[in-house]
Each structure stands twice: as C-alpha cells, then as structure tokens.
C-alpha cells in the first residue's frame, strides 16, 4: 500500500494488544467500544418487528430459523470439527415431533415446541451417534444423506401424513409472540454458544477439531464430547423446526428439504465462518434477499448458490470476520 512517500499502516486498537484474553476495561470509552456492537445487534433485532409490515415480519421469522441453523452449522464445523451438511434433518425431526404432538394430542405450540426441541435433539443425536466415529468428509457425506433417509422412511411407511403432510396445526396466539420467540431464541443461542466455546468444554471441542488423537491421549472420550456438541446443535435446529411447523401450521416432507441444509451454509459462509455472529447476520441478509426472489422460482436457489460460490472462493473469511478486523484496527498513514 504505497503512495509516494507514505504508506498505510494498520494497527490493532490498544485494548486488544494490551491484554491477552482478559479484558481490563479502564475507561467508559473502551467499555462502549466493547459493548456497542452487541448493543446494536440486540436492539436492532428487537426493533425490527416494530417497523416491518406483515409480509416482512414473516420473512423475519424464517430468517430467524435460518439464523439458528447457520449458527449450529458454524458451531459444529468451526468449533468441533464436524461438518454437518444435513441441517434439514434437525428441522424435520423437531418439526414433525412438535406438529404431531399438536395434531394427535392437541398440545399447544408453547408446550409442544420445547418438548419437541429436547425430544428431537435426543432422537437425532441417537440416530447420528453411529456416525460420530466417522472422520472428516465421511461424516459430511453421511450427514448429507440423513434428511433424505428420513423422507424415504416416512414415505415407505406411509405414516405422519406420508407425502401429503398434516395441515391445520395450531399457530401462535399472536404475531408478537411469534416474532419475539424466534428472536429471543436466536439471541440466546448466539450468546449461549459464544459463552460455551470459551469455557473448558469449548476448549475440548476445539482440541478435538485440531487434533483428535491428542485429545484421546489426554484421557478424554471424544465420542462423548462430540455427542454433546451434536446435541447442542440438534437442540437449536429442532427448535427451529418445531417453531417452523407452527409458524405455517403445517408439517410435511419439505421440512426435510435441502434448503434447510444448504441455505444456512451459504449464510454461514457469507457471514463469516467461525465468528458465530457472522452466520446469524448472513441469515438475516440472505433470507430476505432470497424471499424477494421467490417470484422467480428457482432463480432464488441459483442466486444464493452463486453468492455462496463467490464468497467461498473470493472472500472465504466472510463479512463478519472482515468487519471485526476493521473494527479492531485503525489505519493511519506514516512517512516511509
């Protein structure tokens, strides 16, 4: 970056340099500097329902679901080292359980959703358990097949409304519960997972990702920890699915659709893998974009696939990592 006799120099803001992991906050200015981004994010998300119209409120809700899925994908891939290409599996399992509890036993959504999230997470974790031994790309490929497997089985058995699905499920009492439920879930999951990855268990997850053999040699059962990680992801994903089935009052095979596996990945890549916030933001950008194109049929999918390719090839760090870097650095010109 040379222009004449000056060059551009980037410096980390001192607050990051002076401390290593521990923040010693010394002034109001620095405190604002640290808190501002979180504040903007939370307040921003929570005011959105107040300013959007009916249609876009719905879009906001589905963006929330994609945000949860993208968050789960990012967590598993970047912090545990399990690349799960089958997020739709969680959506489907959660959605079916919650929907069926409602359709068959008349449970209200606000009860069936939490139950379905936990039950769904347990079930999907148990089903994925045999695959946790698989490494790297084997796990990725097998997880990619699970949603399809679920579809095949439902069709083959002819249960749960088979190919038709079940409609007229209970929806939410009012639009505010509908929206704030998902937004709160997104914020809680985001900060919960951020907290988690900085604790001991998160360190162990990272260890498994970096070098699973060394973790074994440290006396840690990696399958047990992978199971925990998958459970956490499944919990978030199943919540998303359960919420979705009540959002539209409908359950069916499309809960297992590839969209729920791939769009979150696109959002995560676009937002910046490994930043946790990035994938959430990515989902809130990508969903409205793809929604706006719904009229054009498949163009929607083509477009987000192209965005995905563009980011993964030309800007693999994603938006958020880029922004964070910029936020924590300042630039100045210095004489050479």
């Amino acid at each position: 970056m040379l222009t004449g006799d000056r060059r551009k120099k980037r410096l980390d803001r001192s607050i990051k340099v002076r401390t290593e992991g521990l923040y010693a906050v010394s002034s109001w200015g620095e405190m604002v500097y640290l808190i501002a981004p979180r504040f903007v994010l939370i307040v921003g998300l929570f005011t959105l329902p107040l300013v959007l119209d009916m249609y876009w409120q719905r879009v906001l809700c589905s963006a929330g679901i994609y945000a949860l899925l993208a968050l789960g994908f990012d967590f598993l891939a970047e912090f545990v080292g399990l690349v799960c290409l089958g997020g739709a599996f969680f959506v489907g399992v959660g959605g079916y359980i919650s929907g069926l509890l409602n359709a068959y036993y008349g449970w209200p959504p606000l009860l069936s959703i939490p139950v379905a999230s936990v039950a769904g997470a347990v079930i999907s974790t148990l089903i994925l358990l045999p695959c946790l031994r698989l490494r790297g790309i084997y796990f990725a490929i097998v997880s990619f097949m699970f949603p399809l497997f679920a579809v095949y089985i439902i069709v083959a058995l002819g249960v749960f409304g088979s190919t038709e699905g079940i409609s007229a499920l209970a929806t939410f009492p009012n639009i505010w519960i509908e929206q704030y439920l998902i937004l709160v879930a997104v914020i809680l999951s985001l900060f919960g997972i951020r907290r988690l990855v900085s604790e001991d268990i998160g360190v162990i997850f990272q260890g498994i990702k970096d070098n699973d053999q060394a973790v074994k040699a440290s006396g840690i059962n990696i399958t047990a920890y992978r199971t925990k990680a998958v459970f956490i992801t499944a919990l978030i994903g199943c919540f998303g699915g359960a919420y979705l089935s009540h959002l539209y009052g409908w359950l069916g095979l499309s809960l297992f659709a590839m969209d729920f596996s791939i769009m979150p990945i696109a959002a995560a890549v676009m937002g910046g893998m490994g930043s946790l916030v990035g994938p959430v933001l990515g989902a809130f950008i990508l969903t409205p974009l793809s929604e706006a194109l719904r009229g054009f049929g498949q163009l929607r999918v083509v477009l987000y696939s192209l965005i995905l390719i563009g980011f993964i090839v030309y800007k693999p760090e994603g938006l958020m990592n880029y922004l964070q870097r910029k936020y924590h650095q300042f630039e100045l010109w210095e004489k050479v």
Partner: peptide, 21 residues
C-alpha cells in the same frame, strides 16, 4: 475438503436449478 464440497455442491445447485429456471 469442506469448502470443496460446499463449492461443488453450489455449482451443482446452479446447474440443476438453473435448468429448471
């Protein structure tokens, strides 16, 4: 490997969904 999978699958989506567009 992950990026390769994601990118090649994205190509696949572009082709397949593009054909149906």
């Amino acid at each position: 490997a992950t990026s390769e999978i994601i990118a090649s699958f994205a190509v696949s989506l572009v082709i397949l969904e593009g054909l149906r567009m």
